[in-house]
Amino acid sequence: MAEGTLPAAPPAADTRWLVRAVIARVQLYVFIALVAAFFALPMAWLVLSPFDAHPTLVAGLAHPTLANFADMFRNPAVRGSLLNSVLLALGTMVVVVATAALAAYALSRVHVPGHNVILYVLLLFSSVVTGSAAMVPIFLLAYDLHIINTITGVVLVLAGGLLPAAIFILKDFMDSTPASYEESARVFGAGPFQILRDIVVPLVRPGLAVIAVWSMVTVWGNFLTPFILLRDPSLTPASVQIYSFYSAGGTANLRLISTFGLLYTLPVVVMYLVVQNRYGFRFYGGIKH
């Protein structure tokens, strides 16, 4: 986008042409700056407000303090909700990764007729399962199974919604590991679980990492499912808790919301960075030597 790329213009029209190019460039930069500000300002607010003694809707650091954090950790509901979120995220992640790995391995190695159709249909329905449309039947189902108001219930429902996509992504990773790796292990006498543990899992580790982080992040941010299935306030996760930070009059407690918001965001960012550094985010398979 430097001058070098501008086509040569005839000398007479030179200046006019140049002026127009400069104006176009200025307009472009203004537009980009506006867009950037639109996304950056909330970020700035998120990062700065927790350290301000009297945060307002303006991003800034008028009265720097760490008291907000101290206050927040003294609030038992906050601590409990973060812990609940961790439990939900980890629990769902374990269920999703373990089940998806086994299912994807089986689907990749055993040729069930029409397995692609099964997978696509599941994928289609999975967005329904965790969506609002299915909440009434899911509530009734959970109620009848006596898993209402339990962490287990939420984990199972969320895992059910995530599994099809997880299987879909992992199957692609499994498909792209050469069959000869497993066959040579089989000739040496390894059983299916040994092969899965020693050969397949290490080879699809980037895929597993993506699935793990993606399911934790999704659960971490999910509001509807825990909101509906959990009654007991001591079980509430952070995503639901954040809605309780209003004063009795209905005004938002900005000190609490901003501080909690920052804490609530950090794990997601950290997880993303860790996976990005170790494996790079890939949603397709292939052996990287």
């Binding site: 000869s180 066959e183 040579s184 089989r186 000739v187 006498g189 290490p202 080879l203 052996i287």
Partner: peptide, 20 residues
Amino acid sequence: MPPGPRKVAMVFQDYALYPH
């Protein structure tokens, strides 16, 4: 018999060395 107890060793064309 499954492959293991046959006590054979196979070298594949692509060697099938485990990259990890």
